[in-house]
């Protein structure tokens, strides 16, 4: 067990400093900002609106369209080439799959709800921050949702389960690392996103998911507070 103390001195199950704000983009139907440590996610929701091209329309219910984008100078390393890439496409896809189960679009046949997630600054855990922000933005847009979705990454660093990894931990060199982003519907405990990058044993994975669920509930409280804060001054 090499990793006994976290780089930033947090407890193993402690989140980074979290900040959430709703209604940051006046022109959007719904918007939210979610910051966790140095990772900042902005989400804007537009719609429901007409969907073109027509072949994409679904006459039974509306569709949800997500777009995830890391801004060029957002990360520590090299400048990211602007625009879509393979990674962004995949994350957009899993974001949509993570959010779709809670949003009810049966009232909006042939329509689309667009979700744009932008990341001006990143330090690991971007897809989780994006999903968390997007869930708040969808609620702010007044859509019918059975619950919010909250998301956090957990991981295994050299045999230790840690919550909410930052980039330095993700890039830990002296032992095996697993990075597990998880999104959850808090009321039911259902998991809508579960990915795993790295190595982890079965027992540790079960433990990691348990930790993630506890952390997600904390994030859910922050989401709820932020949504109410917009109206209570």
């Amino acid at each position: 067990m090499g990793y006994t103390k976290r780089f930033d001195g947090r407890k193993f199950d402690e989140l980074r400093e979290v900040e959430a704000k709703v209604g940051i983009i006046p022109r959007a139907d719904g918007s939210a900002m979610f910051r966790i440590g140095k990772t900042v996610a902005l989400a804007a929701v537009y719609g429901p609106k007409e969907l073109y091209p027509r072949f994409m329309q679904n006459p039974q219910q509306g569709i949800l369209r997500c777009s995830y984008n890391m801004m060029p100078f957002s990360s520590k390393g090299e400048r990211v080439r602007p625009g879509q890439n393979r990674r962004a496409k995949e994350i957009s896809y899993v974001t949509e799959k993570a959010l779709r189960p809670v949003v009810d679009l049966s009232q909006f046949p042939n329509a689309v709800v667009d979700v744009f997630i932008e990341l001006p600054q990143t330090d690991a855990g971007t897809r989780c921050a994006g999903i968390t922000a997007a869930a708040m933005a969808l609620a702010d847009a007044g859509l019918t949702m059975k619950d919010l979705v909250c998301s956090v990454a957990v991981g295994n660093i050299d045999g230790t389960i840690v919550t909410d990894l930052m980039y330095d931990e993700e890039a830990y060199k002296d032992g095996p690392v697993a990075d597990i982003p998880i999104a959850m519907i808090p009321s039911t405990g259902e998991i809508t996103l579960l990915q795993l990058d790295g190595e982890i044993s079965k027992d540790l994975l079960v433990k990691a998911i348990r930790e993630a669920k506890a952390a997600c509930l904390k994030i859910n409280q922050i989401q709820r507070q932020a949504l109410k804060q917009k109206y209570v001054k």
């Binding site: 809670v102 007044g142 949702m145 709820r224």
Partner: peptide
């Protein structure tokens, strides 16, 4: 907010903007 429990038990009925989840009445809109 969506997902927030507004009432517990069968004494209350869900109307627009809420749904029933077993014994609970839950909001589904902000």
């Amino acid at each position: 907010v969506p997902g927030e429990e507004v009432a517990d038990g069968m004494d209350y009925l869900p109307s627009t903007g809420t749904y029933r989840d077993k014994e609970k009445v839950v909001s589904n809109r902000l």
